[in-house]
């Protein structure tokens, strides 16, 4: 199958994502400063930091929702530049989950999931629907397939959003504060789905404040402040033995 071939080819390169000396500005404001990051295949990375530190911007640069002005970003051995074909390939390869879910309110849950496979991967409708149902089952809401997003709870909507990304068969998943807009009782159902994904070996980058989740699944925790990566470490040392003062201050405020 061609999909396997693609997967095969991309797994040959050891790095899923590589950022080299990357900078970004909003007007005069220097949001991201000299970011260097190498994400290995199958690695699970948690990014945290105070609000406004640039962590969301960082992962939004990885699928070019934001454009970086300096440095290089490589995803699965393809450079992310102005080339539309490159952008297209990379976006197919990366799934993204947003804080505000961003489901399409005019489409049913099933249509939300099938949209991109049909129009981007050019799959036949039957096949796309079968795949979609499979993923909806995995996030445990196959019975809601014909409802509209407005009829679901926040937790259910976020699980649909995850299923929608998975339908594209991505190699990498980006999560931009996936539980921040949820009521406390719904956070767990979303985190459970994410833990399952992690256990299956998906490459994940996750911006989150859920430190319990970070401790249990992360291979590495990255701490950012004012546009820079301040500290990165395995979760155990990160939480028990933070190096910099800013990390210590941050941890003391949220734990």
């Amino acid at each position: 199958m061609t999909e396997n071939a693609v997967q095969q080819e991309s797994t040959n390169t050891p790095l899923a994502i590589e950022l080299k000396d990357m900078h970004k500005w909003y007007g005069d404001f220097h949001v991201l400063k000299n970011i260097n990051l190498r994400v290995k295949r199958g690695e699970r990375i948690i990014i945290c930091g105070p609000s406004g530190c640039g962590k969301s911007t960082l992962i939004r640069c990885m699928n070019r929702l934001e454009v970086h002005q300096q440095g290089e970003i490589w995803v699965d051995g393809i450079e992310l530049d102005d080339d539309l074909k490159h952008i297209e390939k990379i976006r197919r390869d990366i799934g993204m989950v947003f804080q505000q879910f961003n489901l399409f309110p005019h489409l049913s849950v099933l249509e939300n999931c099938c949209l991109a496979p049909i129009w981007v991967l050019k799959k036949p409708k039957k096949e796309a629907e079968a795949t979609a149902m499979q993923y909806l089952e995995r996030v445990k809401i196959p019975d809601q397939a014909d409802k509209y997003p407005g009829q679901l709870s926040g937790g259910q909507q976020q699980r649909v959003a995850i299923a929608r990304s998975l339908c594209m068969n991505p190699n990498i998943m980006l999560f931009d504060e996936p539980t921040s807009a949820l009521d406390p009782e719904m956070i767990k159902e979303v985190l459970d789905v994410m833990v399952d994904l992690a256990n299956e070996g998906m490459t994940m980058l996750c911006v989150t404040h859920e430190m319990g989740f970070a401790k249990s699944v992360a291979d590495r925790v990255i701490f950012m402040d004012s546009g820079e990566i301040i500290e990165e470490n395995d979760p155990e040392s990160f939480f028990s033995n933070p190096q910099s003062d800013r990390t210590k201050l941050f941890l003391s405020q949220i734990l």
Partner: peptide, 10 residues
Amino acid sequence: GQNEAAEALG
């Protein structure tokens, strides 16, 4: 977010 989600899906 609607535009962004559409872009992110490719």
